[in-house]
């Protein structure tokens, strides 16, 4: 096997083993969207009226509307979780081990990204199974067509996490990521309410949501779950992935001296 594939396999296996060992992380990853689905959605259902907008061809329940957004939420939190674990690895030293491999640094980071994306996809499918048991179902083909959408959305959010981890100097600074990245990205998106609904209250907020790459990731997943394509969302998510990846690779460039410790 090529050294590239060997290292990729090892990095994915290691992340998977870590994930299996941290059962609490898996449960937390599922509980968060389930609380939104089972508790918040029940309350919001009466308050938010939904019109028929693509990809929907009929009136839908609010619970059905928010499931793609909650899939995005799982991936967003997983991306930030892996970013947190990268900062932790850097502080604890194991990141050094990875970065001193003779393989190109971009490949090692990309392998990390693929590993984190694979784990978030597993979480999303587990959530979709629970949603199915709760009665929220999609066309059978949708469970398959959503996979490429999840890969792209996962790569984008993972790349964002990777880029952030290269700029966060200490673990303690991570709380700021919650306040300034996760919450704005999630709430200023189409995850919880359609954008036309947002436009009714504020055009500015609507425009911010429309520019938010997380909105496009959610719409990509929403359309894919209905076995249909959304070229705008696909292009926007792809573009954001490329930008975030570029930032991450730049952030981890050895010339920037990311891992600096005075000896």
């Amino acid at each position: 096997m090529s050294p590239y594939l060997t290292s990729l396999q090892a990095i994915i296996t290691r992340e998977a083993l870590r994930f299996i060992q941290q059962r609490g992380r898996f449960i937390a990853a599922l509980v968060r969207p389930l609380v939104w689905l089972l508790v918040f959605a029940a309350g919001f259902r009466a308050a938010i009226g939904l019109s028929i907008t693509p990809p929907y061809q009929t009136y839908i329940q609010y619970e059905t509307y928010i499931v793609p957004g909650l899939c995005g939420m799982i991936m967003l939190f997983n991306g930030m979780q892996s970013s947190l674990s990268l900062v932790y690895d850097r502080e604890m030293g194991s990141m050094r081990l990875l970065l001193t491999s003779p393989l190109p640094r971009w490949w090692l980071l990309f392998s990390k990204l693929l590993a984190s994306t694979a784990i978030s996809i597993l979480q999303v499918y587990a959530f979709l199974i629970i949603a199915d048991l709760y009665g929220i179902r999609w066309p059978t083909l949708g469970y398959l067509t959503v996979l490429p959408a999840l890969i792209l959305a996962g790569l984008m959010l993972g790349a964002l996490g990777l880029a952030l981890s290269s700029f966060i100097k200490q673990l303690e600074n991570f709380a700021g990521v919650m306040n300034f990245v996760i919450f704005p990205m999630f709430f200023l998106s189409s995850a919880l309410y359609p954008l036309w609904k947002m436009a009714e209250s504020s055009e500015l907020l609507h425009d911010i949501c429309a520019w938010n790459p997380f909105t496009h990731a959610v719409e990509l997943i929403r359309f894919a779950l209905h076995a249909s394509a959304n070229p705008t969302a696909t292009a926007a998510t792809l573009l954001a992935t490329i930008i975030f990846l570029g930032l991450a690779f730049w952030g981890y460039d050895p010339a920037r001296g990311l891992i600096r410790r005075k000896g």
Binding site: R96, G257, I259, G263
Partner: peptide
């Protein structure tokens, strides 16, 4: 003294 800095340069953690 600069030992760890030297090691970081030797291992290309930074350049």
């Amino acid at each position: 003294a600069g030992k760890s800095t030297l090691f970081s340069l030797l291992t290309r953690l930074f350049t």
